[in-house]
């Protein structure tokens, strides 16, 4: 969380508690990472000019390739969002390659998607190629055919049927509970044939209830 540049103790106890409290309130976002610093020199490390060498590249994870146009291609991203990464992360390829930068699987799958797209294949064909190699489980959502249809429609069906049954039952209940008494209002006084003492007591009881 903290971007302390002092290099010694990155999270002081007080700062941590404050952060924790803020975090608990869910208001963390802009607190620690956002500092208004005056515009100044580009780099604090001496001896490194523009695009200088890192002191220790191994600390920054595996070396990266520069981004290519295909990496930002919305069509390719859309395809990758339908493909399940096989690294065990349970994410789609696009999310995995843009989130878990230690993963070697998702960039490889990304390269394969790009290569297939460069061969002029459509999205459907690319997905089919992946399914052919890895099985249906490579897709983020099962294809809508056969038993998988049950996967999609059983919940809605169950809810609809339950809703229909509920409506019927409710109708029956409410009909049963409402005997046909048209002159209900006129029978009010007879329904409440209570002695004045009883009504007085009722009044007192109602007094007790907070409103």
């Amino acid at each position: 969380m903290t971007r302390g540049h002092d290099g010694t103790f990155p999270v002081s106890r007080r700062e941590f508690l404050a952060l924790g409290a803020l975090g608990l309130l869910g208001v963390s976002g802009n607190v620690p990472s956002w500092r208004r610093v005056p515009p100044q020199a580009q780099d604090s490390l001496p001896g490194t000019g523009p695009s200088g060498k890192l002191w220790d590249p191994s600390r920054a994870g595996r070396p990266f390739e520069p981004v290519r146009a295909a990496d930002n291609d919305a069509a390719i991203q859309a395809i990758e969002k339908q493909i399940h990464c096989t690294c065990g992360c349970n994410l789609d390829v696009y999310t995995c390659r843009t989130t878990d930068f230690t993963c070697g699987t998702s960039p490889a799958m990304h390269r394969r998607v790009v290569a297939l797209a460069e061969q002029g294949k459509t999205a459907q064909e690319i997905l089919a190629a992946f399914v052919k190699q890895n099985g249906v489980s490579i897709l983020m959502a099962p294809p809508k055919r056969g038993f998988n249809l049950a996967g999609y429609f059983v919940p809605s069906l169950v809810i609809l049927i339950a809703g229909a049954i509920l409506t019927l039952v409710l109708r029956r209940w409410s009909r049963a509970a409402r005997p046909p008494t048209p002159s209900r209002v006129s029978s009010l006084s007879s329904a409440v044939a209570a002695s004045p003492e009883e009504l007085e007591r009722l009044r007192r009881e109602l007094d007790q209830l907070s409103s």
């Binding site: 209900r184 209002v185 029978s187 009010l188 329904a191 409440v192 209570a194 009883e198 009504l199 007591r201 009722l202 009881e205």
Partner: peptide
């Protein structure tokens, strides 16, 4: 209607 019904219920309970 409801007032009559529930007053009756309350009186009955009392």
């Amino acid at each position: 209607e409801l007032k009559g019904k529930y007053t009756a219920a309350a009186v009955a309970a009392l």
